[in-house]
């Protein structure tokens, strides 16, 4: 076998796939559709790795400052509504459930079911952002947004505001700002990911309705599903870390 850069005649390694109909979405530089699909999934997972590290920096900041300024974190966390947080968690899980069903619908080529599950995913996504808006608005009104207008009076003198909290010393009360910085940075970055996801969902719904994903080409739906579930997972950690720090005291 001297001339070793031989050529694969008739793609003999891929007889197993000869019965497949070549889809228009199949890109020329992939040997098989399977290779293309697995490359897409792998690429999406690598992207999610970068997301883990991106949020990871903020999670570390949270871990550090919560250990340093625990009283401030407890008091500031008690300002968040567990009820709204829990409702939002349920909403987001429901949205993820709808998305999972959407992936199933695409895989078994049910066009109507796919479109409706994607619409449900979108609706629950917006519901989540709606609740988040209500929460953010309250923080603005109470001057709990970090920056020039940030005010610690509720933490220094909680009794005057009808709160049962222990009052914080002024220097520790200042540190509540760090909590709210992390709260806004983390939930804000999470919300930004949701907004990007919702924009993509509109595009996916349009294409699903056109029938793009009902003939065996499911990669965009599956990969978007991975993204959407990742956003869920971030929230699954954010909820106990931000809302449930110390509910059992006071």
């Amino acid at each position: 076998m001297a001339n070793a850069i031989a050529t694969a005649h008739e793609h003999d390694a891929h007889h197993a796939h000869d019965e497949h109909v070549v889809l228009p979405q199949h890109l020329h530089h992939f040997e098989t559709e399977e290779q293309q699909r697995e490359a897409g999934t792998f690429g999406m997972w690598l992207f999610l790795l970068t997301e883990i590290m991106f949020f990871g920096g903020m999670f570390f900041a949270y871990l550090l400052y919560r250990n340093w300024y625990n009283p401030a974190f407890v008091a500031a966390s008690n300002q968040l509504s567990v009820k709204l947080g829990a409702i939002n968690t349920a909403i987001l899980i429901t949205s993820g459930y709808a998305m999972a069903l959407g992936v199933y619908a695409a895989e078994v080529r049910k066009k109507q079911m796919l479109v409706w599950t994607l619409i449900a995913t979108t609706i629950f996504g917006f519901a989540f952002l709606g609740v988040k808006t209500v929460e953010y608005k309250e923080k603005f009104e109470k001057h709990h947004v970090p920056g020039a207008s940030f005010d610690v009076k509720e933490f220094v003198n909680p009794a005057a505001f009808g709160l049962k909290e222990e009052p914080l010393a002024p220097d520790m009360a200042q540190k509540t700002q760090i909590f709210f910085v992390l709260y806004f940075a983390m939930t804000g970055m999470h919300a930004l990911h949701m907004i990007i996801g919702l924009a993509l969902l509109f595009w996916l719904i349009y294409r699903a309705n056109r029938g793009d994903f009902s003939s065996g080409y499911v990669a965009p739906i599956e990969n978007f599903g991975l993204y959407w579930h990742f956003v869920d997972i971030v929230w699954i950690f954010l909820f106990p870390l931000l809302y449930l720090i110390n509910k059992h005291v006071g």
Binding site: P146, K175, Q177, I178, L182
Partner: peptide, 11 residues
């Protein structure tokens, strides 16, 4: 906006 996450004066 001066969030203070790296600012020693804010903790």
């Amino acid at each position: 906006i001066g969030i203070g996450v790296f600012d020693p004066t804010k903790g």
